[in-house]
């Protein structure tokens, strides 16, 4: 089985890769989009003073 990786996927905010599996005839057997990144805002904003939230969560995406 042949494998093609599109890594990284581009022209978007964030990290991603696409892995495509080809069978013996060269046809696509399956393809996966994977998101290899995680920062964990869901955890580290817990308990943050509410007035500070706006300028912390703006760092989730700056685009």
């Amino acid at each position: 089985m042949k494998r093609i990786a599109i890594d990284p996927i581009s022209r978007l905010e964030g990290h991603g890769k696409i892995t495509i599996f080809l069978n013996e005839e060269g046809a696509v057997e399956n393809a996966y989009l994977q998101i290899p990144e995680l920062r964990g805002f869901e955890k580290f904003v817990e308990g943050l003073p509410v007035e500070e939230i706006p300028r912390v969560v703006t760092r989730i995406c700056g685009v």
Binding site: G40, E42, K43, E46, V56, R59
Partner: peptide, 19 residues
């Protein structure tokens, strides 16, 4: 490290479990 560096207040497992 920036704002994402605040994750160092927790362990990897705590972050993964929450998310």
């Amino acid at each position: 490290g920036g704002v994402p560096g605040l994750a160092n207040m927790y362990t990897r497992e705590e972050v993964l479990r929450r998310v």
